[in-house]
Every structure is written in structure tokens, then in C-alpha cells.
Amino acid sequence: MKVVNIAKDFSKYPAGRNKADGPYCGELFRETHLEPSMQDNKELTIKLDGTRGYGSSFLEEAFGGLVRAGHTPVKIKKLITIISSDSSLKEEIFEYIDEGGD
């Protein structure tokens, strides 16, 4: 199983939605770290701790964006495991996955 530590493998400063917003946006994270595993149907663990924090734009675009890219919420939740010391972040991400296609 592949493990992605956002702070180490992506940035300590994730922020923004699209690439036009800034350098470490949700769209870039989704494209580089989430979608390859989703395409290959491989399990993926995402570690959220260690960054400065997460804005709703980043999380929604990264995870909710997977639904808009054509992956079902059931498949996403099956393949992706979220690890965070802040349980509310996990809930927020699942909410974005459930609402992502609205």
C-alpha cells in the first residue's frame, strides 16, 4: 500500500483550489498523488499531520474533485485511508467526497 505524507511528499503549506490559485493547490495534489492510485485501483494512505493546516478549498478540490473526475464515493472511500490526529478533518473530507458530484 502506498503512503503519502502530505507535509513530506507534497508541501507543508497546502492551500488553494486550482493551479491559478497557488503553487500547492488541491488540484495539483489530486493529479499528482491521488488520481494515479485511483486509476490503478490501488490502495492509498494519506497522512494529514505535519502541515500548517488545510483550507476547505484545498480539501474539497483534492478529494471532492475525485468524484467530479469520475470516481464513485464508494470506490474512493474503499481505496483511500485518511490518517489524522484531527478527526474533524477526516469527517470534512468524507463530506466533500459525498457531496463532490453535486
Binding site: 488553494g16 497557488g22 500548517r52 493546516g53
Partner: peptide, 20 residues
């Protein structure tokens, strides 16, 4: 720490609001 992460998300969202 939880306040610091909250502040970070608040301020980056404020940046996003300005830009978008």
C-alpha cells in the same frame, strides 16, 4: 496548535476569496 492550524486555514481561505 489547533488554533494555529485554524488560523492557517482561515488566512489561506481569505487569500482564496481575494483571488477568486
Amino acid at each position: 496548535e489547533e488554533i494555529s492550524t485554524g488560523l492557517y486555514s482561515t488566512l489561506t481561505e481569505a487569500m482564496a476569496n481575494s483571488i477568486n
